[in-house]
């Protein structure tokens, strides 16, 4: 099967009338995602890609039975839209945009936790479950159905790793972009836990990068609770300290957030550390993944 998305997932697109929202809606529909509605305050009643647009999330939930939402909302409006979405009873939220103030992300995260909502992002390509659908911007051609789970901080590297496996006939159960900001809405162990419990997943790949301590903390969780094989690649070994490498969270500060620190923590937890992305294919073959 998959994690976080399944046959019952009914998606609304927030910011559906925007340039990115409308084109991504088309691609999500083409991939088979059940997109049941869109939200743009003030544009209720219109239709985008055959999907009805509503003024509020509550209206959309009432009319369509939506239970999941993907955001293509401008950064400055995300906090408001997020609180509205949680209040309307949506259970799973994917926040694609980047450049959301950290203070807003902390509020969103604490509200989601309080209300039991699972949220991904910000700065995420979203989630894709082959055969079920996708919420976000992942380009469908690189993915194939199968039994490997991928969690990536970077969007482009989630495509790279899925593509490397698909190219040799190994598919994915679900590919998850965890978000690349200094604060993200769900920490890495929470996503790992879903994969550990998922009967459709045999092994998991973590694609991390410099900065923060998600990977280090995940090592503790893996040592204690993971039974499935885990491989990791940590990007950024030649990143100069103190420089932000594109993502707001990708910065080595002093001795914290280095590739070496993350790799040694994960290695100690029994994770296979890949020196180069392409090694993922040998690892997958070794574990006879499909």
């Amino acid at each position: 099967m998959s994690i976080l998305m399944d046959d019952t997932t009914r998606v609304i697109v927030q910011g559906i009338t925007g340039r990115i929202g409308s084109i991504q809606t088309k691609w999500m529909l083409e991939y088979g995602t059940k997109v049941v509605g869109g939200i743009t305050p003030g544009k209720g009643g219109s239709i985008v890609e055959g999907v009805p647009v509503f003024d509020s999330v509550a209206d959309a939930v009432k009319e369509t039975g939506a239970n999941s939402s993907v955001f293509f909302v401008p950064a400055g409006f995300v906090l408001d839209a997020f609180l509205e979405t949680v209040d309307a009873g949506i259970r799973f939220i994917v926040v694609v945009p980047e450049h959301i103030p950290v203070a807003d992300v902390m509020k969103m995260r604490s509200y989601a936790a309080e209300k039991g909502v699972f949220a991904l992002g910000p700065t995420t390509p979203g989630i894709l479950a082959p055969g079920i659908g996708k919420m976000g911007i992942m380009p469908a051609s690189l993915f194939a159905p199968g039994r490997v789970g991928i969690i990536s901080r970077s969007g482009t590297l989630s495509y790279e790793f899925a593509g490397l496996l698909s190219q040799i006939g190994i598919g994915q159960s679900t590919v998850v972009g965890m978000g690349a900001d200094p604060v993200i809405l769900r920490n890495l162990p929470d996503i790992l836990e879903r994969f550990e419990k998922d009967e459709g997943t045999d092994a998991v790949i973590i694609v991390g990068e410099v900065g923060g301590e998600q990977e280090e903390k995940a090592a503790g969780f893996i040592a204690r609770q993971m039974t499935k094989p885990v491989a990791c690649y940590i990007a950024g070994r030649y990143s100069p300290p103190g420089k932000r490498m594109g993502h707001a969270g990708a910065i080595v500060r002093g001795t914290s957030g280095t590739v070496e620190g993350k790799e040694s923590a994960l290695r100690a937890a029994g994770v296979t550390v890949l020196d180069s992305p392409k090694e993922v294919t040998a690892w997958a073959k070794h574990h006879k993944l499909s």
Partner: peptide, 17 residues
């Protein structure tokens, strides 16, 4: 030139390797 931060870092990694 890379279209994402992760891909940019990986390009550096592999060129450096």
């Amino acid at each position: 030139i890379a279209s994402g931060a992760g891909l940019g870092m990986v390009s550096m990694d592999i060129i450096g390797n």
